[in-house]
Nucleic acid binder design. Structure first.
Lengths: 229, 229
DNA sequence: CGACCATTTGATATGGATCAAGCGATGTGG
DNA sequence: CCACATCGCTTGATCCATATCAAATGGTCG
């Protein structure tokens, strides 16, 4: 997760005659130069950023706050695909349409970047192209991990979720959750009652503490990891 | 799914001075020129192609047969991530290691392509780079669809699975399944008993017919789609 | 024919969903 | 400043879909 210094290609510079090896260069393209192309936009709590099926004309990067991507099934159930934290890129599609909807969970600032600008740049700069690929691959990897969670028991899902969030936002074993129980439930394919009961169980066995509902203290990561199967 | 004619860039030709728009060109790079780079290898039924955690030095493309990618959880449960049919590319990683294992389900022929060759080519040819991106994005899209399946009921999962397989291999509403009930169960996060019972139910309501265990006839796609939520 | 393996079917158990209160924060108006 | 409404969360009671355990059936191959 350590940040590499931004690659100092000029903004519109073409790739050089002898290109760097495609896969070997740690890159920060969308984290470096390219964000100059985007405009930071504020979104209020629960505000929609884009809807499923809308044209994917923009890519997005969270500057501050938290975003959820989700789908609504025909019977009204909601499945949250991802929680996007500062630094995360979302809405990255090859297809013409967004496959999920996106909403701000908390008041958020999101960098909005014109897709055509990126893809045009990628056509010229193989470093940018590699970065697009890497970002998509990272998202694939995350989706695969999520998929593995969804075949587990409630305890395993919640433990896995907490460990993941801890990696992403923990300050010293303490997690400040930006999302509600309902969001967690819809992410893990559980009900809020089950999420709540599971947190209580984990508290009972001293794996965690819950000083208040949005704050979780990891007291025994080994125990959580064990549950994580 | 219709095949575009292979792009006729010379094998080692660099991208031209004025590159085509990155995202707009339908491409067949890994389906066209590049497969000349790979060697077709035969794998027997249940033979391992690669293991989770092994170095991802090769990409793979199914020529004939069927491949499963999977992970084994610590308690022995197996989760099948994907069934790969002829034409499908698998093992496409940005990271250095495979995140799943892969095995031939039936006797199969698989094109094995050196990763370094592709990524080196992609560094020079933005068309190849775009194709790598597109393939990964397609895989992401598939994983997201699978993820949505896993939060549904058994009937919905099985119906969704049958519809997906029908799209991929159906000849005239009849599916010849290359995989066992156990494979299906491990793909859908169910037990073989539940898969079997669900198929029986679907037969009872005349949505499908099962002339023999490996052959499924779709008798009422509308009913299946309705179940698919 | 008989052994083996995959699949189906049957009986029972159980984890998580559902239905239904209660509880504790937070905020609002009197 | 307090009463009360609201909202998010927890806890409790019951139900149900799917897992588990067990047996029967069927198809395949020596």
């Amino acid at each position: 997760m350590s940040m590499q210094p931004a690659i100092q290609n000029g903004f519109f510079q073409r790739s050089t005659a002898r290109p760097a090896p495609f896969a070997a260069v740690p890159s920060n393209a969308l984290g470096g130069q390219i964000e100059l192309m985007g405009a930071p936009l504020p979104f209020g709590r629960n505000e929609e950023i884009y809807g499923e099926g809308e044209p994917a004309d923009y890519f997005y990067k969270v500057v501050s706050g938290t975003v959820r991507t989700y789908k609504i099934l025909s019977d009204g159930r909601r499945q949250i695909g991802a929680f996007c934290l500062p630094g995360d890129v979302f809405g990255l599609e090859v297809a013409e349409e967004h496959t999920f909807s996106a909403e701000a969970i908390t008041d958020s600032t999101v960098l909005v970047i014109k897709r055509s600008a990126i893809t045009a740049l990628a056509a010229r700069d193989n470093e940018v192209a590699r970065e697009l690929w890497a970002l998509t691959a990272r998202e694939l990897h995350r989706a695969q991990g999520h998929l593995m969670l969804l075949v587990k028991t409630a305890q395993e899902r919640v433990a896995g979720f907490l460990l993941e969030m801890a990696e992403r936002i923990a300050a010293d074993n303490e997690i400040e959750l930006p999302m509600s129980r309902q969001d967690i439930a819809d992410h893990l394919g559980l009900t809020i009652e089950t999420v709540s009961r599971t947190l209580t169980q984990l508290t009972t066995v001293a794996a965690i503490a819950v000083p208040n509902s949005r704050r979780i203290v990891l007291r025994n990561r080994a125990a959580l990891s064990r549950l994580n199967a």
